[in-house]
Design a protein around this nucleic acid. Sequence first.
DNA 1: TATACTGTGTATAAGGATATACACACAGAA
DNA 2: TTCTGTGTGTATATCCTTATACACAGTATA
Lengths: 143, 143
Amino acid sequence: MGRGGLWIPVHIDENRPEPLYHQVEVQLRGLILSGQLAEGTLLPSIREFAADLRCSAITVRRVYQDLENEGLLRTRQGTGTFVAGIDQSARDEFRLGRVVEAFERAVETGLQLQCSREEMERIWREAYARKKAEADGDKGEQR
Amino acid sequence: MGRGGLWIPVHIDENRPEPLYHQVEVQLRGLILSGQLAEGTLLPSIREFAADLRCSAITVRRVYQDLENEGLLRTRQGTGTFVAGIDQSARDEFRLGRVVEAFERAVETGLQLQCSREEMERIWREAYARKKAEADGDKGEQR
DNA sequence: TATACTGTGTATAAGGATATACACACAGAA
DNA sequence: TTCTGTGTGTATATCCTTATACACAGTATA
C-alpha cells in the first residue's frame, strides 16, 4: 500500500440515526480544529480510510470535499488530501461551541425524562470516568 | 376541529442531521416512558400534530406506527391513537439508559476536542442552568 | 514508459419527507 | 333508521438525500 498507514482515531456507528458522512465529518473536524492533526498532514487516501471505517470510498470522498469547502483541507488529484492552515482565533471559539451544544443536548434529554439534578450529576461523573478510560486506552493501542 | 388541542411538548430542529421522524420518536417515547402521558391518553390526530410540528402528516403517522410496534401506543382507525399501558419495570431502566447515553456522547465530544475535566464541569453546570430555565418557562407558557 | 498509487465523475439503489387521493368511524339532522 | 359531514387513520406516487459500485483521469516513481 501507499504511504503505509496513518491511523486516524475516528469511529462510526451504524446504529446512529445521523448519516455516516456526518459522523465522520464531525470527528475529523474536531481532530483538525483541536490541533491533533497538524497543518500539512497527509491524510489517508479515501480508499484506505474507507477500509478502516468499513464504509464506501465515496462517503469518505464526500467528507474530504465538504471539509475542503470549509477551508479545513486541501486536496490535489493524484497526490492526496492535506490538512490546511487554520485561524488560531476561530479555533477555540468553534471548539467550545461544539462541546456546549453536546452537553445542552444531554441535559435536554435528562430534563425531558424527569431526571433530577443529582441524578444527572452522578451520570455525568460516571460517563466522564468511563469515556476517559476508553480514550486513554485507545491511545495505548495505537499502531 | 376535533377534540380541540392537547398540546404535546415536542420540538423538531430542521438543522439536526438525524431524520425528523426520529427526533419526534425519541421525544414522544420519553414523554410516555416518563409517565407524563398517562395510559389511555388520546394523542392529537396525525394532521393536528403535523401542523404543530410544521411537518407532514405522514411523518407523524410513521412515528405513531413505530411506537405502536414497540407497544407504547394503540391506534384505532377512524378514532385516534392512544397511549398504551407500560411495564413499570422496563420504564426506569429505559429512562436512565437514554440519559446515560446522551451524556456519554457529550463527554466523548469534549474529550475529542481536548476539553479538560474542569472545562466540561463548567459547561455542564451552565448547560443545566440554561436548559432548566427554558424548560420551566415552557410549562408556564403552556396553553 | 509502465505501473500502482492518488482523486473524480457517472449511474444505481435504498431511505426519508412530502402531497394527494382513499377508506373507515362516529355524531347529528332528516 | 338513514343520510351526510367531518373527523380519524391508510395507501400510492414523487422528489430529495444518502450510500454504493464501477469506470475514468491525474501523479509519482522505478
